[in-house]
Simulated assay, not measured.
Amino acid sequence: MPQVSLFVTCVVDQVFPRVGLAMADVLERLGYDVDFPEAQTCCGQPAFNSGYRREARDVAKHFLDTFAQADYVVVPSGSCTSMISHHYRELFHKEPDWLERAEALEPRVWEFSKFLTDVAKVEDVGASFGAKVTYHDSCHALRELQIKTPPRRLLSRVRGLELIEMDKAEECCGFGGTFSVKFAGTSGGMAGTKIESILRTGADYVVSIDSSCLMQLQGALLRAGSRVRTLHLAEVLASR
């Protein structure tokens, strides 16, 4: 089996480390040699989205140096994967040497669920999770990476899990990184609309492939007094 290098993202590293551990557990269960490059920091997305392009380039260059030799880079986030696979080209369009390096790495960078279904060629990872679950499509994963089916295929093969689709699965949760800080009122309103859709399903858990969305949704659910909890897809797939 080729070696898989984990890029765990800032949010997972600082707030939800259990997601990174769950992802490693699933990949090792499938027989992959899992590597965690300790020099990793950030993909550069926060700076990029806030307009700090020079700072974003510096961070992106460090990312490219850190993962240059990886067979595969697997990421538990649609937004970070999209940053690397879509926006590094824009960052480095005036630096041909770095652009070449970014384009060389791009085909080896995979969002976690897409890696499982398209590279590992698996849907049943041996997971068991007895609960009702609804799935939230994160914006970058759905709109930039066109990831909609892989997470659902994986969830459908989890023993004991009942997947209930919400009517607003594709609507934004309102997080959007610094958007939720700069436009807190709008962000909160969007989260409220999403929460109403979640509650109508009667699900016990909301699952997604982006921890930043789940952080936004969990906060809104708690403020609403709901017992519904959030889980990353990797956590569900690691359950036995």
Rank of each mutant, 00 (worst) to 15 (best):
residue 61 K to F: 04
residue 92 F to K: 01
residue 131 A to P: 09
residue 47 A to K: 11
residue 118 D to F: 14
residue 140 H to T: 04
residue 123 E to H: 13
residue 95 E to K: 07
residue 25 D to A: 15
residue 7 F to D: 07
residue 87 H to Q: 05
residue 90 E to W: 14
residue 49 N to A: 13
residue 87 H to W: 03
residue 32 Y to D: 00
residue 29 R to I: 01
residue 71 D to S: 04
residue 75 V to I: 12
residue 107 P to S: 01
residue 77 S to Y: 06
residue 113 S to N: 01
residue 145 L to R: 02
residue 39 A to C: 00
residue 93 H to M: 13
residue 68 A to P: 13
residue 25 D to E: 15
residue 132 K to F: 03
residue 118 D to G: 12
residue 75 V to F: 00
residue 50 S to Q: 14
residue 138 S to Y: 13
residue 21 L to P: 09
residue 20 G to W: 05
residue 40 Q to W: 04
residue 90 E to N: 15
residue 98 W to F: 11
residue 94 K to P: 15
residue 5 S to R: 12
residue 27 L to A: 01
residue 141 A to G: 09
residue 127 A to N: 08
residue 102 A to R: 02
residue 31 G to N: 12
residue 63 F to Q: 05
residue 44 G to W: 04
residue 30 L to I: 00
residue 137 D to T: 09
residue 43 C to P: 10
residue 138 S to M: 11
residue 127 A to K: 08
residue 77 S to Q: 06
residue 49 N to C: 05
residue 125 V to L: 03
residue 144 E to S: 11
residue 104 A to Y: 14
residue 72 Y to T: 02
residue 85 S to K: 08
residue 34 V to Q: 10
residue 67 F to T: 06
residue 96 P to E: 10
residue 143 R to K: 14
residue 69 Q to Y: 13
residue 75 V to H: 09
residue 71 D to R: 06
residue 95 E to Y: 05
residue 77 S to T: 05
residue 42 C to K: 00
residue 89 R to T: 15
residue 19 V to H: 00
residue 91 L to K: 08
residue 137 D to Q: 02
residue 138 S to G: 14
residue 135 Y to W: 06
residue 44 G to A: 00
residue 55 E to K: 00
residue 51 G to R: 06
residue 144 E to W: 01
residue 122 V to S: 01
residue 101 R to I: 12
residue 90 E to D: 15
residue 133 V to I: 02
residue 36 F to H: 13
residue 97 D to Y: 07
residue 59 V to L: 13
residue 72 Y to K: 04
residue 49 N to I: 12
residue 35 D to V: 15
residue 57 R to H: 03
residue 27 L to W: 10
residue 58 D to T: 15
residue 101 R to G: 03
residue 10 C to Q: 04
residue 61 K to C: 03
residue 8 V to I: 07
residue 33 D to G: 13
residue 144 E to T: 06
residue 131 A to C: 11
residue 92 F to M: 10
residue 39 A to L: 11
residue 103 E to T: 13
residue 100 E to R: 13
residue 52 Y to V: 13
residue 22 A to C: 01
residue 11 V to Q: 10
residue 37 P to H: 00
residue 140 H to C: 07
residue 91 L to V: 09
residue 48 F to T: 11
